[in-house]
């Protein structure tokens, strides 16, 4: 039901992101999706990769501060209102979203995938399932 996301603490310095992508490339780790949150001083890089455990270990070895989290990956229809439908479900249930980001699915050109982090994860999963939304498994997500 959940997929593994790795988060990396980064200072806002030129070339820092490139160092991380370099390490991942060198180790043949494929980035499936990513999002960057930042303030004026620091940022958090959030990644969905094909082998999260290995990626986390490699980044730790390179002395990055890394954290693994579980997030929800759900399919949405790639059309106007597709995201709105899901947000309406959450809003009615009083679930607030910590953060979210999207990527497009390769297999179906009419679907997008939303990565969502909420506090009430179990409740959010149930609501999505009841509404007939497809939640991606870890394996599905990493090999999209």
């Amino acid at each position: 039901m959940f997929v593994k996301q790795i988060s990396v603490f980064m200072e806002n310095r030129a070339g820092r992101l490139e160092e991380i992508t370099g390490i991942l490339a060198e180790n043949q780790i494929n980035i499936r999706a990513l999002a960057l949150a930042d303030t004026s001083d620091f940022g958090i890089l959030r990644l969905i990769v094909d082998s999260p455990d290995r990626a986390a270990a490699i980044l730790r070895k390179a002395e990055f501060t890394v954290r693994e989290n579980e997030v929800i990956a759900t399919e949405i229809e790639d059309r106007p209102g597709g995201l709105h439908d899901i947000l309406t479900l959450f809003s009615k249930a009083g679930i607030s979203i910590e953060y979210m980001y999207a990527f497009l699915e390769r297999k179906h050109d009419d679907r997008a995938v939303m990565i969502i982090r909420v506090e009430a994860a179990a409740k959010a999963v149930k609501i999505l399932q009841d509404a007939g939304k497809h939640l991606l498994t870890a394996a599905e997500t990493y090999t999209l």
């Binding site: 996301q5 988060s7 603490f9 949150a37 930042d38 303030t39 620091f42 958090i44 959030r46 501060t65 890394v66 954290r67 989290n69 910590e98 953060y99 982090r117």
Partner: peptide, 15 residues
């Protein structure tokens, strides 16, 4: 220095 003990994956946690 931010170590894994205090690293929050949310901006507001770090702030």
């Amino acid at each position: 220095e931010v170590n894994e003990k205090v690293f929050s994956d949310e901006i507001r946690g770090l702030e």
